[in-house]
Design a binder for these strands. Structure first.
Lengths: 221, 221
DNA sequence: CTTTGTGAAACTCTTCACAGCG
DNA sequence: CGCTGTGAAGAGTTTCACAAAG
């Protein structure tokens, strides 16, 4: 799936670990806000909702940042995880498709706060073009390539209807983008070397329905 | 994490398989719309974006629904997967928090089409209460317990700000709900027997940033 | 001859349990 | 003495490769 680059500085962090680092970061930021200076693996694991052995193993992939008998320095660990995730640099993100979901994303504080800067909002509907959202003016989708190139966009969020998603995808890849977050309920086909992550709102509900049905069938309730 | 109920009719479908069934269902519905009568594991796997051996193993957990030398009957497989996921029954869903995200969810066709019926939209902000969205009137969050009980809500979607999420969660569990889909960026603490699935919009971006950074560092580009 | 269904092998991820550091 | 970091064991998942079915 993801291209592995066997490289000197690639310490080969497992995908499962990478997926949890943002969780740890969020928990650590909560602790930092409350002024906590250090935290044990036990407490941090509880705050992030994982098992403490898993947390220690995850962190061990980044380096030896804890102190035995004490725990982890909150600020230092925030820095190390941020650096590992690439959040110490500034990523320009464009959101294509400014319906309710696109608006929700544009207004979502979690993006801007962590290394991401929304550099463009685009939509194909002339009715929407010109609207001001989260301090930006919505531009026409025709401008996609221009916006990507002029503003150094490296990550594109696709929040269009399913029917437009593949076409938008092809265009942004052609413009040089290799990281895409897709909210449209379609499987995007992309060449090697392009990363696509997808979020499908209805899939999660379907998984819940499966478990809910099992609860109703089972004896243990 | 998820409670296992070792039960006669629990054929113990692996979690990884359950998570992919909605994907297959979506691909199958696409084929059905185009009138395709049967499909091979190879073709269906390609449409769903997975490896064909994995697809066959996944489907084998549900039963022997294919025909060797031919493939799978599209309509029949749609029915079997729907039944397994519990989508042949009607699930009443309430959405708490009617900001942009809540509105996006309420208007999202994918929910209504597949066994889910939005039975309530609730918000704590009096400014929003009374708005009509997707054919429903937004009710005050004070009505939460009443709505859940009167309308038989079994799944609740939390789309509130982080600060309100745990409180809403506690209340819906108290009212008898055991399946929660959480969009707020907090780890909800819940008793045993309650299923929580979470979608964090910013975590996916952070994972992309990690890979994007690796591409920039690596030699292979 | 095509395509499913599946043991077995390979791989990944999680958890245990404790040596060893501070 | 408390807590990290980690080998080793265990659980879960993916992929291979092929026998058996149609």
């Amino acid at each position: 799936m993801t291209r592995r680059i066997p490289q000197a500085r690639d310490r080969g962090i497992p995908d499962a670990t990478v997926a949890r680092l943002p969780l740890y970061l969020r928990a650590l930021n909560g602790l930092a806000e409350r002024g906590t200076p250090t935290v044990s693996s036990e407490d941090l694991a509880a705050a992030a909702g994982v098992n403490s052995a898993k947390l220690r193993k995850d962190l061990s992939h980044l380096g030896s940042y804890g102190t035995r008998g004490v725990g982890y320095d909150v600020q230092y660990l925030i820095y190390q995880i941020s650096r590992e995730l690439g959040l110490t640099q500034d990523w320009a993100v464009a959101i294509v498709g400014v319906g309710n979901l696109g608006r929700a994303l544009a207004n979502y504080g979690g993006f801007v706060s962590r290394g991401f800067r929304i550099a463009g909002l685009l939509d194909g509907d002339p009715q929407v073009v010109g609207d001001r959202i989260a301090g930006l003016t919505v531009e026409h989708a025709d401008e996609l390539e221009t916006v990507i190139k002029r503003r150094g966009v490296s990550i594109v969020v696709i929040a269009t209807p399913a029917s437009a998603a593949q076409q938008v995808c092809d265009r942004v890849i052609e413009a040089g983008v290799t990281s895409i977050l897709n909210f449209a309920p379609v499987v995007l086909s992309v060449p090697d070397g392009v990363d696509v992550r997808k979020v499908d709102l209805s899939i999660e509900l379907q998984i819940l329905a499966f478990h809910e049905q099992r609860k109703a069938d089972g004896v243990v309730m």
